[in-house]
């Protein structure tokens, strides 16, 4: 087997270094490219979650009238009462709820 001259060995090392750099750069470009395509194709669910949260959030607007300062519900849903009605075996101050 013939031994390499110093010049031939330097050329071989230089070629090997260029190949290593090219492979690394190519892999990096491929990762970024695939990631971009994936991100564009599947936008994820963060915006949907934000909408769902907003829909369940009750906000209050305060409006000053000529006679008083009052607030009204402005939520994006009809709000149930915090406690369910019970049969009227107790309590005070009866009034009638009916059509008018």
């Amino acid at each position: 087997m013939d031994s390499l001259t110093p010049t031939q060995r330097d050329r071989g090392l230089e070629r090997l270094r260029r190949l290593t750099f090219g492979a690394t750069a190519g892999a990096l470009v491929a990762v970024v490219g695939v990631g971009y395509v994936a991100a564009a194709s599947y936008a994820g669910t963060s915006s949907a979650n934000a909408s769902a949260t907003a829909a369940e959030t009750t906000t209050t607007t305060t409006t000053t009238t000529d006679s008083s300062s009052s607030s009204t519900s402005s939520s994006n849903s009809l709000q149930p009462s915090t406690q369910a009605p019970t049969t009227g075996s107790s309590g005070s101050g009866t009034v009638t709820s009916g059509g008018s």
Partner: peptide, 12 residues
Amino acid sequence: SGGWRIHIAEDS
């Protein structure tokens, strides 16, 4: 105590 009593009717 016990809440407000509300009578339910068709006519207020």
